[in-house]
């Protein structure tokens, strides 16, 4: 069974198509990313899957449960961390978890152990009785993830999980998310506009733009689809073009300057064998550099634009900052 299966999913707001007939599926135990710019329809897709809003047309199921007909059953097995703030900063970390363990009807004898586990797991145990408004941005985010774990969800939805976090806090959140999948087999559907985040975190990515999925596959597949990595090398004694062509697609070759550019699928693997065959032709390589293809290139190819910072992300960041300052 697929963890999530969407077929021709559409969500209209009056005459604006926020999500335009998208189809995708998420395997159990996968970390699946919806990558795209502001207003691409990622958050709307998550909210429809979470049964917060009803789709205009198309079908969507979570572990075989219909999101329209059995909304409460989907919510019972789902955890959700919205892009905005989902913890009450006027309560302590512990209370935030206790509240949600009650709202998910966790049996009384299991509550304390679940809360304790989640706090331990997210490294918040020592600050659990402090008001959440005294937490740092990274701690608030970890508390939000802990909160989403109170019902031991099979399916976890993360909307822009690392938005507004500094690089260290970001990495910590990524580690925690990965461990959830590795240790408990939780299936995770996340949205992000951060190419790097999608690359390090996701097993599979669907690139969204203007309500449509424009490309999908593993990060490696997607990067390979834009041509691959570019190797530039400099060698003066002899023409390398012939040898290089055996290893990949020659992008440019200027023997008189001794400069060559070559496109290959996996740069770091290709370099040693290229050097070896050039060596066997008695050509001495003076320097070599590798430019890996990025998801940014992928996005540029399929969406015809670069992902821009700003819009609601800026709002979300300002919001998070404002909430912290309120304390």
């Amino acid at each position: 069974m697929k963890a999530v299966e969407a077929v021709n999913l559409t969500k209209m707001y009056s005459d604006f198509k926020a999500v335009d007939a998208i189809s995708f599926d998420v395997d159990e135990g996968q970390i699946f990313g919806l990558l795209g710019p502001n207003g691409a329809g990622k958050t709307t897709t998550i909210r429809v899957t979470l049964t917060l809003i009803k789709p205009t047309s198309g079908s969507i199921t979570v572990f075989g449960i219909d999101c329209v007909k059995s909304a409460a059953a989907v919510r019972q097995i789902s955890g959700y961390v919205p892009q905005e703030v989902s913890i009450d900063t006027d309560l302590t970390g512990y209370e935030n978890l206790l509240m949600y363990s009650k709202l998910y009807y966790t049996p009384k004898d299991q509550r304390e152990s679940r809360i304790g586990d989640a706090l331990e797991y997210m490294d918040l145990a020592d600050r659990q009785h402090d008001l959440a408004k005294t937490y740092s941005g990274g701690m608030m985010r970890r508390l939000e993830i802990a909160q989403a774990l109170m019902n031991r969800p099979k399916m976890l939805f993360l909307d822009e999980p690392s938005i507004g976090l500094d690089p260290t806090a970001k990495t910590a959140v990524w580690e925690h998310v990965k461990r959830l999948r590795d240790e408990f087999g939780t299936t995770i559907l996340l949205t992000t506009h951060d190419m790097h985040e999608a690359d390090v975190l996701c097993d599979e990515i669907a690139i969204m733009n203007r309500g449509k999925i424009v490309a999908d596959g593993s990060p490696e597949e997607l990067k390979a689809s834009v041509g691959g990595d570019v190797i530039s090398l400099v060698a003066h004694n002899g023409d390398c073009s012939q040898v290089l062509q055996e290893h990949g697609k020659l992008l440019s070759s200027r023997p008189e300057e001794g400069a060559y550019e070559l496109v290959v699928a996996r740069g770091e693997k290709a370099i040693p064998s290229i050097l070896e065959s050039l060596e066997s032709h008695k050509i001495h390589v003076e320097s070599v550099s590798l430019k890996k293809s990025t998801l940014d290139d992928v996005f540029l190819k399929y969406a015809g634009a670069r992902i821009q910072e700003g819009g609601t992300w800026k709002d979300a960041r300002l919001l998070r900052r404002a909430v912290r300052k309120r304390g």
């Binding site: 909210r47 979470l50 917060l52 409460a72 059953a73 919510r75 019972q76 789902s78 959700y80 919205p82 892009q83 905005e84 703030v85 989902s86 913890i87 009450d88 949600y100 709202l103 998910y104 009807y105 909160q147 919001l319 909430v323």
Partner: peptide
């Protein structure tokens, strides 16, 4: 709603 707390609350099975 603006903060996100309401979305979170509505994502629980509570009627």
């Amino acid at each position: 709603r603006d903060l996100g707390l309401l979305n979170k609350l509505l994502s629980t099975p509570a009627p």
